[in-house]
Amino acid sequence: MAVADLLVMIFAVIVYLIFNYHFPYSFLSYTAACKFILYINFVNLDMSVWFTVSFTFDRFVSICCQDVKDKYCTKRIATTIVFTASILACLKGVPMFFSYEAERVIDNVHWGCRTTEAVYTLPAWTVYSWMQSTSVVLLPFSLMALFNSLTVRRILLANRTRRGLRGNGSESQSDAELKNRRKSIVLLFTVSCSFILLWLTSVGSFAATRISNSVYYQGGYSSPGYIATEVGYLLLYLSSCTNTCIYAVTQRKFRDELNIMLRSPWVLFVELFEDKKQFKSNQRFISSRKQHFKFIYV
C-alpha cells in the first residue's frame, strides 16, 4: 500500500503534473509517453485504493471473524490478494491506451494527448467510464465505511465485555490485550478515515456531475463544479502520501524495514569494497608465497 501510494505521488504529481507543466515539448509530451503515463497513473491509483480497502478488510476479518482469522490472515493470502489486485488494475487500465489520441502533429511527430471523440459517442465507453468511476470512487468508499463501522462496533463490545469480566478491582492494572486493540483501532482509523475524508470531495463531485449527467468544466474555471472537481483531485492525491507517513510514524516494523531498504545499497557497496580489498590482499599473499618458493627452489 505504501509503495502504490508512493508511485502515485511520483507519476501522477511529479511526472505528469509538475514535469509536463514546467518542461513542455520534452520527451514526456510525446503521445506514446503521454499515454503510458496516463495508464500508469490510473493503475497506481487503482492499486492504492484497493490495497487500502484490502487492508481494512484484513483488519475486519482479524477482529470480527475469529473463525476464519487463522486461515485468511496469512502471508500467502496477503501475497495472493496483492498480486491479484495488481493484475486486475493493469487489465482495467488497458482501454486507457485507446481513449486518447495525439493532440497535434508537428513534422510527423505526435505531441500531447486528448480524449478521442469515440469516448463521448460510443455507449461502450460510457459503460467503461461508469465502471471505472464506480470501482475507484463509490465502491471502495462504501466498503471502507461498512468495514470500519462493523470493526468499531465489535471492538467496543469486546472491550466492554472484557472490562466487565476483569472486574472493578483490576481496572487500574495494565491490560496488554486492551492496549493491542487500542493500537489496532488507532492505526485502522487513521488510515481509513484519512482515506474517507480526503476522498469525500471526489465522491461529492462525482455525485454532482456524473450522476446528474452534467459536465464539471461547464462555465469555465470559475464554475463551482470545476472547482469542486479540482479540489477533489488535490485531496485525492494528498491521500496517497498520508498512508506512508502514517506507517512511518506508527509502525516500528515498517520503520525497520524502511531502514533496511535504505541501508542495503550502502551495505552492498561496503561488502563489495571489503571483498575487493580482501581479494587484493590474497593476491599479494599468493604472489609473496610464489616468490618465496621460487627463492627456495633456486
Rank of each mutant, 00 (worst) to 15 (best):
D70N: 11
L45Y: 15
V68H: 06
Q66S: 12
M47P: 13
F51W: 02
F42I: 02
K35L: 08
C65H: 14
F57H: 04
T56D: 04
I40N: 07
Y25L: 08
K71H: 04
T31L: 10
L28V: 07
K69L: 02
V68L: 13
T56Y: 00
C64T: 13
Y25W: 05
Q66A: 10
F60S: 09
C64P: 01
I40W: 01
A33W: 04
K35P: 06
F42S: 06
S62Q: 12
V53R: 00
S48P: 08
K69C: 08
I63V: 15
T56I: 14
D46R: 11
F42T: 05
M47C: 13
S29A: 11
D46L: 02
A32L: 15
R59F: 01
V61I: 13
F55S: 01
V61L: 05
V61E: 04
S48A: 13
F57M: 07
Y39A: 04
L28T: 14
F57Y: 07
K71E: 11
N41D: 14
D58E: 06
A32V: 15
Y25M: 09
M47Y: 06
F55V: 00
F55H: 03
V68F: 06
Q66N: 12
V61S: 03
Y39T: 09
F36C: 15
T56H: 00
S48F: 13
L38D: 12
T56P: 06
F36A: 15
D46W: 10
T31H: 08
A33N: 13
S62Y: 14
D46C: 02
Y39F: 14
C34I: 10
R59M: 07
S29I: 03
T52G: 07
F55I: 01
F60V: 04
F57R: 01
L28M: 13
F51D: 08
T31M: 09
C34T: 13
Y25V: 09
I37C: 11
S62C: 12
D67R: 09
F57T: 04
K71T: 07
Y25N: 09
I40L: 15
F27Q: 06
K69R: 12
Y25K: 05
I63K: 01
